[in-house]
């Protein structure tokens, strides 16, 4: 099932939640809607599900106008952030619900319903919980039951709102892998909303980055990570060092001093921001790179050592954090040279 959104606008009173969103989703994709809270990602998901209605724009599934249909007619499986399990029903009845409310003509008989529910319980590997009530389940179990319930109606599209938002870190990791393998098993077009960039990059085939009601970038995880389209995307995805710089006459200056080996190619003149990933900062002897600084503090853990470096450029007050490999031991007080391997320059307004 393909999904096409054309110029979706949605306002809540004076607040514009979605400001002209266009998006095409290919059949069988696993797409992440990534953005900070208030970026409109959940509203977009609810519009696709038919739980909210846009003020303007079109939604079509396989080229057919979906806005003509109510939520119940769209055959969209929706997994709510807080699961919205029916608290007075057992796990079994929760999953069976969508089957039981079907019109009599197409409704399965009791045996058929039982078989289908059992199949889904096996799929989410929770068959032993079938007689429990939602409040007797852990967060991760509720999440999987909510998913099984959504899958029961054999949805053409699966939508998940912050599927791992309410879970603790360890369970999140497990469920991420599980969701990815589940998707490859059932290969239904799926969209999930998240504010966690790591989650989006790790699970999705394609990531849609949203900010203030607009889509700012669409791409594969590596595209959005390596080639962020805007300062917002760069700042939101991955941890970045941001330096306020001045671009003029093909030269990039920090605190008035030109930065060697940093090209201003393609950057507009004026106040700008220089973005560098922490681990893209190469450490060398003093005087060797485009930047120079004094190590203020070093913490070593895992594969890297994280150093706070007070830059000599400008007023000397700028402190940045870099991740350096542990082969070259840094010590507080060291004067070092820093050379960005990769960097991006965006206009300061962006």
């Amino acid at each position: 099932m393909t999904i096409e959104l054309k110029h979706i606008v949605k306002k809540f009173g004076a607040f514009t939640a979605l400001d002209g969103v266009d998006l095409k989703v290919a059949d069988g994709e696993l797409l992440a809607l990534l953005g900070p809270s208030g970026s409109g990602k959940t509203t977009l998901l609810r519009i696709i599900a038919g739980l909210d209605w846009p003020d303007a724009g079109e939604v079509s599934f396989n080229g057919e106008n979906a806005l003509a249909q109510g939520a119940g007619e769209r055959h969209v499986g929706f997994v709510f952030q807080h699961y919205a399990l029916f608290r007075h029903m057992t796990v079994f009845e929760n999953i069976a619900f969508g089957l039981r409310v079907q019109p009599r003509a197409i409704r399965k008989n009791e045996a058929g319903i039982r078989a289908r529910v059992k199949e889904l319980l096996d799929l989410v590997q929770l068959g032993w919980l079938s007689d429990r009530y939602p409040n007797q389940l852990s967060g991760g179990q509720r999440q999987r039951i909510a998913l099984a319930r959504a899958l029961a109606i054999e949805p053409r599209i699966l939508l998940l709102d912050e599927p791992f938002g309410a879970l603790d870190a360890k369970v999140r990791k497990e469920l991420r892998q599980w969701l990815r393998s589940l998707h490859s098993e059932i290969s239904v077009t799926s969209i999930f909303v998240t504010h966690d960039q790591e989650e989006a990059l790790e699970v999705a085939n394609r990531v849609v980055v949203m900010d203030r009601g607009r889509i700012v970038q669409i791409g594969t995880p590596s595209e959005v990570y390596d080639n962020p389209a805007t300062a917002f995307v760069h700042g939101f995805i991955g941890e970045s060092i941001v330096l306020p710089v001045e671009v003029s006459q093909g030269c990039v200056r920090l605190g008035g001093r030109p930065l060697l080996d940093i090209s201003a190619d393609g950057a507009a003149c004026g106040a700008s921001k220089l973005f560098i990933r922490r681990h893209d900062m190469q450490v060398g002897p003093a005087g060797s790179g485009s930047l120079e600084g004094t190590v203020a503090h070093v913490r070593s853990f895992g594969p890297v050592q994280r150093a706070e470096v007070a830059l000599c450029a400008g007023e000397g007050k700028t402190v940045i954090e870099i991740d350096a490999p542990r082969d070259r031991a840094l010590q507080a007080g060291d004067l070092i040279g820093l050379q960005p391997r990769r960097y991006r320059i965006f206009a300061a307004q962006d």
């Binding site: 038919g50 739980l51 909210d52 209605w53 003020d55 109510g70 939520a71």
Partner: peptide, 10 residues
């Protein structure tokens, strides 16, 4: 309700 001319979910 939600929006003029359109349905609300419930």
């Amino acid at each position: 309700s939600a929006t003029a001319g359109r349905r609300s979910t419930l």
